[in-house]
Design a protein around this nucleic acid. Structure first.
Length: 426
RNA sequence: GGAGAGGUACCGAAGUGGUCAUAACGGGCCCGACUCGAAAUCGGGUAGAGGGCUAAUAACUCUCACGUGGGUUCGAAUCCCACCCUCUCCGCCA
Protein backbone atom coordinates (compact mmCIF):
# COMPACT_ATOMS: atom_id res chain seq x y z
CA UNK A 1 0.00 0.00 0.00
CA UNK A 2 1.17 3.48 -0.79
CA UNK A 3 1.22 6.27 1.76
CA UNK A 4 -2.03 8.24 1.53
CA UNK A 5 -0.15 11.44 2.25
CA UNK A 6 2.30 10.77 -0.54
CA UNK A 7 -0.59 10.15 -2.86
CA UNK A 8 -2.43 13.27 -1.72
CA UNK A 9 0.58 15.53 -2.11
CA UNK A 10 2.25 14.08 -5.18
CA UNK A 11 -0.66 12.66 -7.05
CA UNK A 12 0.47 13.40 -10.57
CA UNK A 13 4.03 12.20 -10.08
CA UNK A 14 2.80 8.97 -8.47
CA UNK A 15 0.46 8.54 -11.39
CA UNK A 16 3.38 8.97 -13.74
CA UNK A 17 5.47 6.36 -11.91
CA UNK A 18 2.64 3.85 -11.86
CA UNK A 19 2.03 4.49 -15.54
CA UNK A 20 5.44 2.93 -16.21
CA UNK A 21 3.81 -0.36 -15.27
CA UNK A 22 1.21 0.21 -17.93
CA UNK A 23 -1.43 0.94 -15.32
CA UNK A 24 -3.50 4.07 -15.28
CA UNK A 25 -4.46 5.46 -11.89
CA UNK A 26 -7.69 7.33 -11.62
CA UNK A 27 -6.82 10.67 -10.04
CA UNK A 28 -10.36 11.88 -9.77
CA UNK A 29 -11.57 8.85 -7.89
CA UNK A 30 -8.86 9.16 -5.29
CA UNK A 31 -9.20 12.91 -4.81
CA UNK A 32 -12.92 12.62 -4.46
CA UNK A 33 -12.81 9.78 -1.93
CA UNK A 34 -10.01 11.33 0.07
CA UNK A 35 -11.70 14.70 0.27
CA UNK A 36 -15.07 13.26 1.20
CA UNK A 37 -13.52 11.05 3.83
CA UNK A 38 -11.93 14.01 5.56
CA UNK A 39 -15.09 16.06 5.39
CA UNK A 40 -17.19 13.32 6.95
CA UNK A 41 -14.57 12.59 9.52
CA UNK A 42 -14.29 16.18 10.59
CA UNK A 43 -18.03 16.48 10.95
CA UNK A 44 -18.45 13.22 12.85
CA UNK A 45 -15.65 14.11 15.23
CA UNK A 46 -17.15 17.51 15.90
CA UNK A 47 -20.52 15.98 16.72
CA UNK A 48 -18.96 13.31 18.91
CA UNK A 49 -17.20 16.06 20.82
CA UNK A 50 -20.49 17.83 21.45
CA UNK A 51 -22.08 14.61 22.58
CA UNK A 52 -19.29 13.84 24.99
CA UNK A 53 -19.46 17.33 26.47
CA UNK A 54 -23.19 17.10 27.14
CA UNK A 55 -22.91 13.63 28.61
CA UNK A 56 -20.29 14.88 31.00
CA UNK A 57 -22.56 17.74 32.01
CA UNK A 58 -25.37 15.30 32.71
CA UNK A 59 -23.04 13.27 34.85
CA UNK A 60 -22.19 16.32 36.94
CA UNK A 61 -25.80 17.41 37.32
CA UNK A 62 -26.92 13.96 38.40
CA UNK A 63 -24.19 13.75 40.98
CA UNK A 64 -25.17 17.14 42.35
CA UNK A 65 -28.68 15.86 42.85
CA UNK A 66 -30.14 17.65 39.87
CA UNK A 67 -32.97 15.66 38.37
CA UNK A 68 -34.13 17.77 35.46
CA UNK A 69 -31.84 16.51 32.72
CA UNK A 70 -34.40 15.34 30.15
CA UNK A 71 -33.74 18.28 27.86
CA UNK A 72 -30.06 17.42 27.74
CA UNK A 73 -30.81 13.79 27.04
CA UNK A 74 -32.94 14.92 24.12
CA UNK A 75 -30.01 16.92 22.77
CA UNK A 76 -27.82 13.84 22.89
CA UNK A 77 -30.47 11.78 21.15
CA UNK A 78 -30.70 14.14 18.24
CA UNK A 79 -26.91 14.36 18.00
CA UNK A 80 -26.80 10.59 18.03
CA UNK A 81 -29.07 10.35 15.05
CA UNK A 82 -26.90 12.69 13.03
CA UNK A 83 -23.75 10.87 14.08
CA UNK A 84 -25.12 7.48 13.14
CA UNK A 85 -26.19 8.53 9.69
CA UNK A 86 -22.88 10.29 9.06
CA UNK A 87 -20.98 7.25 10.26
CA UNK A 88 -22.69 5.14 7.63
CA UNK A 89 -21.58 7.56 4.93
CA UNK A 90 -18.09 7.74 6.37
CA UNK A 91 -17.72 3.98 6.47
CA UNK A 92 -18.81 3.67 2.89
CA UNK A 93 -16.28 6.24 1.73
CA UNK A 94 -13.53 4.73 3.89
CA UNK A 95 -14.17 1.27 2.51
CA UNK A 96 -14.02 2.53 -1.05
CA UNK A 97 -10.87 4.48 -0.38
CA UNK A 98 -9.25 1.58 1.36
CA UNK A 99 -10.14 -0.80 -1.40
CA UNK A 100 -8.77 1.66 -3.93
CA UNK A 101 -5.49 1.97 -2.01
CA UNK A 102 -5.14 -1.80 -1.63
CA UNK A 103 -5.33 -2.30 -5.38
CA UNK A 104 -2.66 0.24 -6.33
CA UNK A 105 0.66 -1.48 -7.08
CA UNK A 106 3.99 -0.33 -5.69
CA UNK A 107 5.99 2.42 -7.35
CA UNK A 108 8.89 1.05 -9.41
CA UNK A 109 12.32 2.10 -8.14
CA UNK A 110 14.12 4.70 -10.22
CA UNK A 111 16.70 2.13 -11.33
CA UNK A 112 14.00 -0.04 -12.91
CA UNK A 113 13.94 0.12 -16.69
CA UNK A 114 10.73 1.14 -18.39
CA UNK A 115 9.35 -1.66 -20.49
CA UNK A 116 6.33 -3.76 -21.30
CA UNK A 117 7.22 -7.34 -20.57
CA UNK A 118 9.80 -10.07 -20.24
CA UNK A 119 11.54 -9.13 -23.49
CA UNK A 120 12.43 -5.71 -22.07
CA UNK A 121 14.19 -6.99 -18.94
CA UNK A 122 17.84 -5.88 -19.01
CA UNK A 123 20.40 -8.57 -18.32
CA UNK A 124 22.55 -7.71 -15.32
CA UNK A 125 25.09 -10.51 -15.25
CA UNK A 126 25.94 -14.02 -16.35
CA UNK A 127 27.78 -16.79 -14.55
CA UNK A 128 29.19 -20.10 -15.69
CA UNK A 129 29.91 -21.70 -18.99
CA UNK A 130 27.01 -23.18 -20.93
CA UNK A 131 27.40 -26.97 -21.13
CA UNK A 132 27.97 -28.59 -24.47
CA UNK A 133 26.69 -32.02 -25.32
CA UNK A 134 27.96 -34.53 -27.85
CA UNK A 135 24.39 -35.79 -28.12
CA UNK A 136 20.98 -34.17 -28.29
CA UNK A 137 20.10 -32.82 -24.85
CA UNK A 138 16.79 -34.10 -23.53
CA UNK A 139 14.03 -32.37 -21.62
CA UNK A 140 13.84 -33.01 -17.91
CA UNK A 141 10.51 -34.79 -18.26
CA UNK A 142 12.05 -37.27 -20.67
CA UNK A 143 15.01 -37.83 -18.41
CA UNK A 144 12.79 -38.07 -15.33
CA UNK A 145 10.44 -40.57 -16.87
CA UNK A 146 13.21 -42.71 -18.30
CA UNK A 147 14.91 -42.86 -14.90
CA UNK A 148 11.51 -43.48 -13.31
CA UNK A 149 11.97 -40.67 -10.80
CA UNK A 150 9.16 -38.43 -12.07
CA UNK A 151 5.69 -39.92 -12.56
CA UNK A 152 3.31 -37.49 -14.21
CA UNK A 153 0.44 -39.92 -14.83
CA UNK A 154 0.29 -40.95 -11.18
CA UNK A 155 0.47 -37.33 -10.01
CA UNK A 156 -2.45 -36.49 -12.26
CA UNK A 157 -4.41 -39.51 -11.08
CA UNK A 158 -3.91 -38.68 -7.42
CA UNK A 159 -4.66 -34.96 -7.67
CA UNK A 160 -5.00 -33.60 -11.19
CA UNK A 161 -2.98 -31.98 -13.93
CA UNK A 162 -0.15 -29.92 -12.60
CA UNK A 163 0.77 -32.38 -9.87
CA UNK A 164 3.67 -34.80 -10.03
CA UNK A 165 4.71 -37.88 -8.09
CA UNK A 166 8.44 -37.96 -7.32
CA UNK A 167 9.90 -41.39 -6.83
CA UNK A 168 13.12 -42.94 -5.57
CA UNK A 169 16.17 -40.76 -6.09
CA UNK A 170 13.92 -38.07 -7.56
CA UNK A 171 12.16 -37.69 -4.23
CA UNK A 172 15.54 -38.01 -2.52
CA UNK A 173 17.02 -35.21 -4.64
CA UNK A 174 14.13 -32.88 -3.88
CA UNK A 175 14.61 -33.36 -0.14
CA UNK A 176 18.39 -33.17 -0.44
CA UNK A 177 18.17 -29.82 -2.18
CA UNK A 178 15.96 -28.48 0.60
CA UNK A 179 18.47 -29.59 3.24
CA UNK A 180 21.41 -28.32 1.25
CA UNK A 181 19.92 -24.87 0.78
CA UNK A 182 18.74 -24.54 4.37
CA UNK A 183 22.14 -25.46 5.64
CA UNK A 184 23.93 -23.07 3.29
CA UNK A 185 21.73 -20.11 4.22
CA UNK A 186 21.69 -20.74 7.95
CA UNK A 187 25.36 -21.64 8.37
CA UNK A 188 27.06 -19.39 5.89
CA UNK A 189 24.63 -16.58 5.16
CA UNK A 190 23.31 -16.21 8.70
CA UNK A 191 19.59 -16.60 8.14
CA UNK A 192 17.33 -17.94 10.89
CA UNK A 193 15.46 -21.04 9.83
CA UNK A 194 11.69 -21.01 10.38
CA UNK A 195 9.04 -23.57 9.55
CA UNK A 196 5.73 -21.70 9.38
CA UNK A 197 2.12 -22.75 8.88
CA UNK A 198 1.37 -23.54 5.23
CA UNK A 199 -2.14 -22.19 5.66
CA UNK A 200 -2.72 -18.54 6.51
CA UNK A 201 -5.62 -16.23 7.20
CA UNK A 202 -6.88 -13.38 5.09
CA UNK A 203 -5.06 -10.67 7.00
CA UNK A 204 -1.73 -12.29 6.22
CA UNK A 205 -2.56 -12.45 2.52
CA UNK A 206 -3.52 -8.78 2.54
CA UNK A 207 -0.34 -7.95 4.43
CA UNK A 208 1.95 -9.19 1.68
CA UNK A 209 -0.28 -8.04 -1.18
CA UNK A 210 -1.79 -11.26 -2.59
CA UNK A 211 -5.23 -10.04 -1.53
CA UNK A 212 -7.60 -8.45 -2.26
CA UNK A 213 -6.48 -8.36 -5.87
CA UNK A 214 -5.31 -11.85 -6.71
CA UNK A 215 -7.84 -14.13 -5.11
CA UNK A 216 -8.11 -16.27 -8.24
CA UNK A 217 -4.45 -17.30 -7.97
CA UNK A 218 -4.95 -18.82 -4.52
CA UNK A 219 -6.35 -22.03 -3.13
CA UNK A 220 -8.91 -21.15 -0.51
CA UNK A 221 -10.38 -23.20 2.28
CA UNK A 222 -13.90 -21.88 2.07
CA UNK A 223 -15.17 -23.04 5.46
CA UNK A 224 -12.70 -20.91 7.40
CA UNK A 225 -11.46 -18.24 4.99
CA UNK A 226 -8.03 -19.80 5.14
CA UNK A 227 -5.67 -19.88 2.20
CA UNK A 228 -2.90 -22.23 1.12
CA UNK A 229 0.29 -20.23 0.85
CA UNK A 230 1.57 -19.51 -2.67
CA UNK A 231 5.04 -18.81 -1.22
CA UNK A 232 6.76 -18.76 2.18
CA UNK A 233 6.95 -14.99 1.74
CA UNK A 234 3.41 -14.80 3.11
CA UNK A 235 3.74 -16.54 6.47
CA UNK A 236 7.32 -15.40 7.04
CA UNK A 237 6.78 -11.72 6.28
CA UNK A 238 3.70 -11.84 8.50
CA UNK A 239 5.77 -13.09 11.42
CA UNK A 240 6.17 -9.45 12.41
CA UNK A 241 2.78 -8.14 11.36
CA UNK A 242 1.54 -5.43 13.73
CA UNK A 243 4.81 -5.31 15.60
CA UNK A 244 7.25 -2.54 16.44
CA UNK A 245 10.82 -3.77 16.24
CA UNK A 246 13.92 -2.28 17.81
CA UNK A 247 16.50 -0.69 15.53
CA UNK A 248 19.13 -3.04 16.92
CA UNK A 249 17.15 -6.07 15.75
CA UNK A 250 17.45 -5.03 12.12
CA UNK A 251 18.24 -6.41 9.68
CA UNK A 252 16.42 -9.67 10.37
CA UNK A 253 17.10 -12.60 8.06
CA UNK A 254 14.82 -15.62 7.78
CA UNK A 255 15.05 -18.69 5.62
CA UNK A 256 12.13 -21.03 5.28
CA UNK A 257 11.26 -24.17 3.41
CA UNK A 258 7.60 -24.53 2.48
CA UNK A 259 5.53 -26.12 -0.22
CA UNK A 260 3.78 -23.51 -2.38
CA UNK A 261 0.29 -23.80 -3.82
CA UNK A 262 -0.77 -21.83 -6.87
CA UNK A 263 -3.82 -22.13 -9.03
CA UNK A 264 -1.98 -20.69 -12.00
CA UNK A 265 -5.23 -19.27 -13.29
CA UNK A 266 -4.57 -17.71 -16.65
CA UNK A 267 -1.42 -19.75 -17.22
CA UNK A 268 -3.19 -22.54 -19.07
CA UNK A 269 -1.18 -23.87 -21.93
CA UNK A 270 2.13 -22.59 -20.54
CA UNK A 271 4.71 -25.17 -19.55
CA UNK A 272 2.14 -27.93 -19.52
CA UNK A 273 4.81 -30.60 -19.72
CA UNK A 274 7.26 -31.30 -16.95
CA UNK A 275 7.57 -29.73 -13.53
CA UNK A 276 8.39 -26.14 -14.44
CA UNK A 277 4.88 -24.97 -13.61
CA UNK A 278 2.99 -26.95 -10.99
CA UNK A 279 0.08 -26.30 -8.66
CA UNK A 280 2.22 -27.51 -5.79
CA UNK A 281 5.96 -27.10 -5.56
CA UNK A 282 8.66 -26.76 -2.94
CA UNK A 283 10.71 -23.67 -2.33
CA UNK A 284 13.32 -22.37 0.07
CA UNK A 285 12.67 -18.71 0.60
CA UNK A 286 14.84 -15.91 1.98
CA UNK A 287 13.12 -13.02 3.76
CA UNK A 288 14.68 -9.85 5.14
CA UNK A 289 13.39 -7.04 7.30
CA UNK A 290 15.64 -3.99 7.07
CA UNK A 291 15.87 -0.30 7.91
CA UNK A 292 14.82 1.82 4.91
CA UNK A 293 18.31 3.13 4.23
CA UNK A 294 19.76 -0.36 3.95
CA UNK A 295 17.23 -2.12 1.78
CA UNK A 296 18.87 -1.72 -1.62
CA UNK A 297 22.23 -2.82 -0.30
CA UNK A 298 20.45 -5.78 1.29
CA UNK A 299 18.76 -6.61 -2.00
CA UNK A 300 22.18 -7.06 -3.61
CA UNK A 301 23.38 -9.41 -0.88
CA UNK A 302 20.09 -11.31 -0.97
CA UNK A 303 20.62 -11.84 -4.67
CA UNK A 304 24.18 -13.02 -4.03
CA UNK A 305 22.96 -15.48 -1.39
CA UNK A 306 20.54 -16.98 -3.91
CA UNK A 307 23.20 -17.02 -6.65
CA UNK A 308 25.52 -18.84 -4.31
CA UNK A 309 23.26 -21.90 -4.45
CA UNK A 310 23.65 -22.15 -8.21
CA UNK A 311 27.38 -21.53 -8.05
CA UNK A 312 27.85 -24.37 -5.61
CA UNK A 313 25.73 -26.65 -7.74
CA UNK A 314 27.80 -25.47 -10.72
CA UNK A 315 24.79 -24.46 -12.77
CA UNK A 316 25.05 -21.61 -15.27
CA UNK A 317 22.69 -18.73 -14.93
CA UNK A 318 22.04 -15.13 -15.76
CA UNK A 319 20.41 -12.36 -13.78
CA UNK A 320 17.89 -9.95 -15.23
CA UNK A 321 16.35 -6.88 -13.65
CA UNK A 322 12.62 -6.85 -14.24
CA UNK A 323 11.40 -3.90 -16.23
CA UNK A 324 8.50 -1.78 -15.01
CA UNK A 325 5.90 -3.73 -16.97
CA UNK A 326 7.07 -7.13 -15.72
CA UNK A 327 7.35 -6.15 -12.06
CA UNK A 328 5.09 -7.87 -9.53
CA UNK A 329 2.32 -5.98 -7.79
CA UNK A 330 4.08 -5.38 -4.46
CA UNK A 331 7.67 -5.06 -5.64
CA UNK A 332 9.63 -1.86 -6.19
CA UNK A 333 12.52 -3.73 -7.77
CA UNK A 334 13.08 -7.36 -8.69
CA UNK A 335 16.00 -9.41 -9.95
CA UNK A 336 15.19 -12.73 -11.53
CA UNK A 337 17.83 -15.40 -11.61
CA UNK A 338 17.43 -17.59 -14.65
CA UNK A 339 19.13 -20.96 -14.83
CA UNK A 340 20.28 -22.39 -18.14
CA UNK A 341 18.17 -25.35 -19.24
CA UNK A 342 19.83 -27.27 -22.09
CA UNK A 343 16.68 -29.30 -22.75
CA UNK A 344 14.82 -26.12 -23.56
CA UNK A 345 17.84 -24.28 -24.90
CA UNK A 346 16.82 -21.31 -22.76
CA UNK A 347 17.32 -19.50 -19.48
CA UNK A 348 14.37 -20.04 -17.16
CA UNK A 349 13.50 -18.30 -13.90
CA UNK A 350 14.66 -20.18 -10.84
CA UNK A 351 14.62 -17.35 -8.31
CA UNK A 352 13.04 -13.95 -7.93
CA UNK A 353 14.56 -11.46 -5.47
CA UNK A 354 12.59 -8.35 -4.63
CA UNK A 355 12.64 -5.24 -2.53
CA UNK A 356 9.15 -4.19 -1.50
CA UNK A 357 10.37 -1.12 0.36
CA UNK A 358 7.62 -0.15 2.82
CA UNK A 359 4.76 -1.36 0.63
CA UNK A 360 4.15 -4.60 2.51
CA UNK A 361 5.22 -3.13 5.83
CA UNK A 362 2.52 -0.48 5.60
CA UNK A 363 -0.13 -3.05 4.78
CA UNK A 364 1.04 -5.40 7.49
CA UNK A 365 1.91 -2.78 10.11
CA UNK A 366 5.55 -3.79 10.48
CA UNK A 367 7.48 -0.94 12.06
CA UNK A 368 10.61 -0.11 13.99
CA UNK A 369 11.95 2.77 16.06
CA UNK A 370 15.12 4.48 14.93
CA UNK A 371 15.73 5.66 18.51
CA UNK A 372 13.91 4.74 21.70
CA UNK A 373 11.63 7.74 21.73
CA UNK A 374 11.12 8.17 18.00
CA UNK A 375 7.85 7.62 16.25
CA UNK A 376 7.69 4.19 14.72
CA UNK A 377 8.60 4.00 11.02
CA UNK A 378 7.86 1.28 8.53
CA UNK A 379 10.59 -1.24 7.86
CA UNK A 380 11.49 -2.40 4.39
CA UNK A 381 10.79 -6.01 3.46
CA UNK A 382 12.63 -8.11 0.91
CA UNK A 383 12.48 -11.67 -0.21
CA UNK A 384 13.88 -14.03 -2.76
CA UNK A 385 13.77 -17.67 -3.65
CA UNK A 386 16.83 -19.45 -2.58
CA UNK A 387 15.81 -21.43 -4.66
CA UNK A 388 12.71 -22.96 -6.20
CA UNK A 389 13.37 -26.65 -5.58
CA UNK A 390 11.50 -28.24 -8.49
CA UNK A 391 13.16 -25.98 -11.00
CA UNK A 392 16.53 -26.75 -9.46
CA UNK A 393 15.82 -30.43 -10.04
CA UNK A 394 15.01 -29.55 -13.65
CA UNK A 395 18.29 -27.69 -14.00
CA UNK A 396 20.28 -30.57 -12.53
CA UNK A 397 18.61 -33.20 -14.69
CA UNK A 398 19.09 -31.22 -17.87
CA UNK A 399 22.60 -29.93 -17.20
CA UNK A 400 24.05 -33.09 -15.69
CA UNK A 401 22.49 -35.58 -18.11
CA UNK A 402 24.77 -38.14 -19.73
CA UNK A 403 24.61 -39.82 -23.08
CA UNK A 404 23.58 -43.14 -21.49
CA UNK A 405 20.55 -41.49 -19.87
CA UNK A 406 22.03 -41.30 -16.41
CA UNK A 407 22.39 -38.09 -14.44
CA UNK A 408 25.41 -37.14 -12.37
CA UNK A 409 24.70 -35.60 -8.97
CA UNK A 410 26.51 -32.28 -8.44
CA UNK A 411 29.31 -32.87 -5.90
CA UNK A 412 27.97 -30.26 -3.48
CA UNK A 413 24.70 -32.16 -3.21
CA UNK A 414 26.12 -35.64 -2.68
CA UNK A 415 26.51 -35.38 1.11
CA UNK A 416 22.78 -34.70 1.30
CA UNK A 417 21.97 -37.72 -0.88
CA UNK A 418 23.73 -40.31 1.16
CA UNK A 419 26.77 -40.12 -1.09
CA UNK A 420 24.94 -41.06 -4.30
CA UNK A 421 26.98 -39.82 -7.25
CA UNK A 422 24.80 -40.70 -10.16
CA UNK A 423 21.24 -41.70 -10.98
CA UNK A 424 21.27 -44.65 -13.34
CA UNK A 425 18.61 -46.33 -15.38
CA UNK A 426 17.19 -49.35 -13.58
C1' G B 1 -16.22 -30.87 20.75
C1' G B 2 -17.93 -30.12 26.43
C1' A B 3 -17.09 -27.31 31.24
C1' G B 4 -14.64 -23.33 33.64
C1' A B 5 -11.25 -18.97 33.92
C1' G B 6 -9.27 -14.98 31.39
C1' G B 7 -7.71 -11.12 27.33
C1' U B 8 -6.18 -3.39 30.10
C1' A B 9 0.67 -0.07 27.98
C1' C B 10 7.32 -3.34 27.14
C1' C B 11 5.89 -7.16 31.32
C1' G B 12 2.87 -8.16 35.69
C1' A B 13 -1.48 -6.01 37.47
C1' A B 14 -5.60 -2.55 39.78
C1' G B 15 -10.02 -0.58 38.03
C1' U B 16 -16.93 -4.02 37.89
C1' G B 17 -21.64 2.44 34.98
C1' G B 18 -19.63 9.02 35.17
C1' U B 19 -15.31 14.36 36.88
C1' C B 20 -8.25 8.80 37.05
C1' A B 21 -6.87 6.00 30.05
C1' U B 22 -1.00 10.36 28.10
C1' A B 23 -4.40 4.00 32.95
C1' A B 24 -3.25 3.22 40.32
C1' C B 25 0.64 -0.08 42.12
C1' G B 26 5.11 -3.19 41.01
C1' G B 27 8.90 -4.40 37.49
C1' G B 28 11.66 -3.25 32.98
C1' C B 29 13.80 0.45 29.78
C1' C B 30 15.79 5.70 28.83
C1' C B 31 17.79 10.44 30.84
C1' G B 32 19.81 12.97 35.05
C1' A B 33 21.88 13.35 40.24
C1' C B 34 25.14 10.84 43.66
C1' U B 35 30.00 7.82 42.63
C1' C B 36 36.85 7.21 40.58
C1' G B 37 33.34 3.72 38.19
C1' A B 38 29.33 0.50 39.31
C1' A B 39 25.49 -1.31 42.57
C1' A B 40 22.03 0.72 45.81
C1' U B 41 19.34 5.25 46.37
C1' C B 42 16.89 9.78 44.68
C1' G B 43 14.51 12.85 40.61
C1' G B 44 12.42 12.89 35.74
C1' G B 45 10.72 10.35 31.32
C1' U B 46 8.58 6.04 28.86
C1' A B 47 2.09 3.55 23.71
C1' G B 48 -0.58 3.82 19.13
C1' A B 49 -3.88 5.52 14.90
C1' G B 50 -6.58 9.24 12.21
C1' G B 51 -8.25 14.42 11.67
C1' G B 52 -8.11 20.03 12.36
C1' C B 53 -4.67 24.20 12.34
C1' U B 54 0.23 24.74 9.99
C1' A B 55 5.88 25.91 5.94
C1' A B 56 6.42 21.99 9.50
C1' U B 57 7.66 15.01 10.79
C1' A B 58 7.03 21.96 15.66
C1' A B 59 3.28 23.82 19.13
C1' C B 60 -1.82 23.60 20.07
C1' U B 61 -6.40 20.96 19.54
C1' C B 62 -10.16 17.06 18.51
C1' U B 63 -11.65 11.98 17.70
C1' C B 64 -10.67 6.84 18.14
C1' A B 65 -8.19 3.21 20.99
C1' C B 66 -9.23 -1.68 27.58
C1' G B 67 -9.10 -8.98 22.24
C1' U B 68 -12.75 -7.97 17.62
C1' G B 69 -17.65 -6.52 16.11
C1' G B 70 -22.54 -5.25 17.57
C1' G B 71 -26.21 -3.76 21.46
C1' U B 72 -28.28 -1.35 26.13
C1' U B 73 -27.53 3.71 28.35
C1' C B 74 -27.46 10.79 28.54
C1' G B 75 -22.71 8.15 29.61
C1' A B 76 -19.47 1.42 28.95
C1' A B 77 -12.89 -1.21 30.42
C1' U B 78 -17.23 -2.02 33.65
C1' C B 79 -23.93 -4.52 31.73
C1' C B 80 -25.88 -7.82 27.33
C1' C B 81 -24.99 -10.74 22.55
C1' A B 82 -21.77 -12.93 18.80
C1' C B 83 -16.99 -14.12 17.29
C1' C B 84 -11.44 -14.64 17.93
C1' C B 85 -7.44 -15.94 21.06
C1' U B 86 -4.97 -17.84 25.75
C1' C B 87 -5.01 -21.06 30.12
C1' U B 88 -7.06 -25.40 33.17
C1' C B 89 -9.94 -29.93 33.24
C1' C B 90 -12.66 -33.68 30.30
C1' G B 91 -13.40 -36.08 25.51
C1' C B 92 -11.18 -37.20 20.73
C1' C B 93 -6.72 -37.72 17.98
C1' A B 94 -1.17 -38.08 14.55
Amino acid sequence: MLDVKLLRENLSSVQKEIARRGIELSLGEFENLDRRRREYLKEVEELRHQKKTISEQIGKLVRDGEKVVEGKKEQVHSLDEKIKSLEVDLKEVEDSLNNFLLTIPNIPHSSVATGKGEEDNPEVKRWGKLPEFSFKAKNHWEIGQELDILDFERGTKIAGSGFTLYKGLGARMEMALISFMLELHTREHKYLEVLPPFIVNRDSMIGTGQLPKFEEDLYKIEEQSYYLIPTAEVPVTNIHRDEILERAELPKYYVSYTPCFRREAGAHGKDTRGIIRQHQFNKVELVKFTAPDDSYRELETLLEDAEDVLKRLELSYRVVSLCSGDLGFSAAKTYDIEAWLPGQNAFREISSCSNFEDFQARRAGIRYREKTKDKPRFVHTLNGSGLAIGRTVVAILENYQQEDGSVIIPPALRPYMGGVERINKQ
